[in-house]
Computed example of a mutant assay.
Amino acid sequence: MENLHILFWLLKDIGWCMLWKPLGISMIFPTLAIALIITWRTRHIAAELAHNLAIVFWISANSYWMISEFLEFDTARIWGNVTGKHLALLPFLTGLLILLYYYLVQRPRESQAEQIPA
């Protein structure tokens, strides 16, 4: 499933790069769906959950950015100097915050728990 996920992701980004809107947009759903399935399947492992959630948010941000360019609202001002494309920062930053929480809070707790003798 992970290999199929990579195939869909590459097709989505090729569609974006080549401005093939139907290909790029049609690959959002399978790419995101498989990322969500992988995340659900690995939810019991904290490291995998954190990284796979970050990937889900990365794909979401990347897909939004692609759509903003395809539909030409990427340069439209939303608020001040913030454009349509800049809104992709919200899911990008959400993924980053998940990873920061994992590495700064969760992982140290796991390491500490492993060092405590049973």
Rank of each mutant, 00 (worst) to 15 (best):
L90N: 04
W79A: 10
R77A: 13
L96R: 04
G80F: 05
R107F: 12
L90E: 00
G84K: 04
G80I: 02
L93N: 10
I98G: 05
P108Q: 08
V82W: 10
H86W: 05
I78Y: 02
P108K: 05
Q106N: 10
T83M: 04
N81V: 06
L96N: 12
G84Y: 02
N81W: 12
W79F: 15
G95R: 01
G95M: 02
F92G: 01
L97A: 15
Y101W: 13
I78Q: 03
F92Y: 15
R77L: 09
L100Q: 14
L99P: 02
L93A: 14
R109M: 14
I98D: 07
L90F: 09
P108L: 09
G84L: 02
T94E: 02
L104A: 15
T83V: 03
G84V: 04
L93W: 07
A88K: 00
L93H: 13
R77Q: 08
P108S: 07
F92I: 01
R107V: 01
R107S: 13
L104W: 11
R77E: 13
P91V: 02
L99A: 05
Y102A: 04
L89S: 08
P108F: 07
L104D: 06
R109K: 14
G95A: 07
L93F: 12
L99W: 00
G80A: 08
T83K: 09
G80P: 03
L99E: 14
L100P: 07
R109G: 12
R77T: 11
R77Y: 11
R77S: 13
H86D: 15
L100G: 15
L96G: 12
R107T: 06
L89Q: 03
H86C: 03
